[in-house]
Design a protein around this nucleic acid. Structure first.
Lengths: 163, 163
DNA sequence: GGCAAACACTTTACAACTAAACCTTTTGGG
DNA sequence: CCCAAAAGGTTTAGTTGTAAAGTGTTTGCC
């Protein structure tokens, strides 16, 4: 009994043969729904956010720490963005940020003990939520979905490079 | 020869049986890539953005205009957000915003002629870009992808309502 | 008729994002 | 050795998003 969204209306207005458009709309809607669920959950349970979790994840997987530039390129965001997120994480005591001795331009960012604890909890919750969401589909179906998405992603990458 | 992203690292660290996690990661990466491409394109070609396009689309599909609240729920964002986007669109002469006579709380937002022209151009470009991105896959493959995404989205909807 | 509640919207405060300009430090040719 | 260019980060200005509080209007009930 929900009111139709713009996406419903667009879907209806699409010609029969617009398969690509329907696929993209499906991708957009599916992603947004899940993203919203994860966002709310992190906000309520941990008073935190997905971008913060992403940074913590990057650091958790890099025990030697990462520079600001590595964080930015690794998370596919701008360096300016990382400056902000990391400084807030630092204020909350979740990460450490140390200027390198050998090259004073470089900042080395590492996870604090508290940051590690928070990440562990978030990670478990994240995995559980995602697992629940996809619980209706079989492993084979999920693998097929993953493969198609990957094919599409690689196609985008190639087009972007070419353009 | 790209440097690995955090998403690549997460993918590697995932146990064999984490099919759901791989599916979500695929969804996330695929969506982000396409979103980025569309964003850049709109920014360069039209000096505009996807959220603006979304609002124009909603209005283009509703010839009688929409209220601020309808725009918000239709685009699944907050009313506060719509206030901002619409006011910028109005400043650029792309939409009109008129207080209803019968109920002075209500704002009726409609597309201007210029807004319509811009939307037509953006819409064509959008469709072309999406079409290019998915050009490597057959209609059948795309329909299968769309169906799986829809199944997942509905599953999310149900979980959210239940929780 | 009056007034509390509901409604439509705006404002505020803030996180997260981008692009582009700007610092500071290091490096590499001459 | 020196200085221009490159490299690593930060700052600035602006959009997009949220949540929550605030402002008017209208409605519905006594």
């Amino acid at each position: 009994m929900d009111k139709p969204t713009v996406f419903d209306l667009v879907l209806e207005s699409l010609p029969e043969k617009a398969h690509h458009r329907r696929a993209w709309l499906g991708l957009l809607r599916c992603f947004s729904s899940i993203d919203r669920v994860l966002m709310r959950r992190f906000s309520e349970k941990f008073n935190s956010s997905l971008p913060r979790y992403d940074v913590l994840t990057a650091l958790a997987l890099s025990p030697n720490g990462m520079t600001m530039g590595e964080l930015a390129s690794s998370l596919m965001v701008t360096k300016g963005n990382i400056t902000g997120v990391v400084s807030r994480l630092k204020q909350d005591g979740l990460v450490r940020k140390i200027t390198s001795r050998s090259d004073r331009r470089i900042q080395s960012v590492t996870l604090s003990a508290e940051g590690r604890r928070l990440w562990d909890a978030m990670h478990a919750d994240y995995d559980e939520t995602v697992s629940e969401i996809f619980s209706g589909q079989s492993s084979e179906e999920l693998d097929a979905l993953t493969e198609m998405l990957e094919i599409t992603r690689v196609a985008v990458q190639k087009k972007t490079r070419a353009g």
